[in-house]
Amino acid sequence: MRVVLTGGGTGGHIYPALAIAEQLKADKPETEFLYIGGKRGLENSIVPAAGLPFETLDITGFRRSLSADNVKTVLRFMRGVQISSQLLEKFKPDVVVGTGGYVCGPVVYAAHKLRIPTLIHEQNAIPGLTNRFLSRYVNTVAVSFDGTQGQFPKARRVMYSGNPRATTVHRADREEGFGLLGLPSGTPIALVVGGSIGAKAINEAMLQIVPEIAGMPETHFVYVTGKRYYEEAKRSLDEAPWTPPANLHVLPYVERMPEVLAASTLVVSRAGASFLAEVTSLGIPSVLIPSPNVTNNHQEVNARALEDEGAAIVITERELSGGRLFAAVEAIVRDDYLRTRMSERSASLGKPDSARILAAELGKLAVRAKAIRRGAL
């Protein structure tokens, strides 16, 4: 099978696409891939590092207010469809998969015009503008959150698949996670992370509770500042009037997050959909602090979906303080019943077979398209 993947801008769009590729490759090692991304997104470093052939388009998104830039966006879209058509005709894929971000628009639309089977995957509880636009043209829309199928009323087929990143993380080796952190197997770990760049509000609250952490010596706090905020956080700790406790581990970034997640007892994080899929695939309780700086406030909607099921405690950024954060963490760590219950509810929301479900759907689309071309259907 020959597969084109497209998705970009953030890791939340890129890693699900790579998880699908990983599953397809495991099922059929002869599968060939082409990844089409944007010129400005994180995919420019992540995808080549994953070893996939990579092409780019110059594409931007629409501004939500009247702007002359939207005229340029339309022209870039039209040019993107033209270039995508050329790439698709040359590669001759059996199926095209879009996982979100502006670059999906021209690629998936071009595939539709060329009558190539298409599937888009929506990670969030509130769909993005690009996927809403594409939903009327594709063969299948796959959603991460059960109950959100109705968000695509014009789609031909909508299926609940979960997020394929869950499959990748579910396979992670827990013992390797302890080894990477230099901690004994079974050590209780509270992982605090704001994404690869970091989250200023989470960092500020975390620095406020460092003195309290010393009172929980049995739990090790792995505090991932994000690369942008690492030096600032280290400086704040160095200049503090107290010595940072031995159970605090400060890191700028975690290269092998699946293994570290697998070793974690509790996670404090933003509420990006792909990360929540990873957390629930492992059944980890969480304290979620949704980013307010996202379209349609979709991170809070994502987080509330877990909170409503008893899998997470949600603290909005406007409510966040060191005291509020520590109270939530302490409640989960010290209450075995609550932690176990939250873990069970988290696991009940997980979809560790997501990548397999999507790979099976893609296989069906490809087989059906080949049958149609042969005149068998």
Rank of each mutant, 00 (worst) to 15 (best):
R339S: 14
L320D: 02
S196P: 04
T219N: 13
Q299T: 07
R79D: 15
R157E: 14
S144R: 00
P352K: 07
G9W: 01
R174H: 03
V158K: 03
V3D: 00
I20K: 06
T295L: 15
P352W: 09
L349K: 03
N139M: 02
T295H: 14
G375Y: 12
T265M: 07
S274D: 08
V169D: 05
K72C: 05
N297I: 00
S291M: 13
T295Y: 13
P352T: 01
P241K: 03
T219Q: 08
A273W: 01
E317L: 11
G226D: 04
A21T: 08
N163P: 08
A327R: 14
D335P: 06
I46L: 14
T316V: 09
V329Q: 12
A371P: 05
K370P: 02
A366K: 05
V314E: 13
I46P: 11
R270Q: 05
V329G: 11
L119E: 09
R156K: 15
L338I: 04
F145E: 04
A19V: 11
Q82N: 05
L24W: 10
V279E: 06
N302T: 03
L320V: 06
L183E: 10
I315K: 00
V367D: 15
A277N: 06
A172L: 10
A26D: 09
G182I: 07
F91I: 06
P352N: 03
F275K: 10
G310Y: 06
V71A: 15
T60N: 11
G310M: 02
P252N: 05
S343H: 09
A19Y: 06
E259K: 02
G101L: 01
T295D: 15
T130N: 04
V267A: 03
A311T: 09
A246P: 07
G61M: 05
R368S: 15
G194K: 00
E278K: 03
N293H: 15
R373G: 06
L18Q: 07
T99R: 08
A311W: 01
I202M: 01
K234W: 03
A369R: 13
S346E: 04
E361Q: 11
P292V: 00
A50L: 02
R345I: 10
L24G: 00
M1H: 12
G12C: 08
A142K: 02
P244G: 07
G100R: 01
I289W: 08
R341P: 03
F275G: 10
V169G: 11
Q86S: 15
G226V: 05
T243S: 14
T340K: 12
D353K: 12
Y229V: 00
G41T: 10
S161M: 12
E278Q: 09
R165S: 15
T167N: 11
T118M: 04
Y160R: 04
F152R: 03
P48Y: 07
A190W: 05
A155V: 00
S135V: 00
R171S: 11
P290D: 09
G8C: 11
P127Q: 07
D58T: 10
A305F: 13
G11Y: 06
T10C: 02
L57I: 07
I197W: 13
L276V: 04
I46R: 00
S321F: 03
S291N: 15
V158I: 11
K39Q: 13
H170P: 10
L248N: 08
G283F: 00
E89L: 14
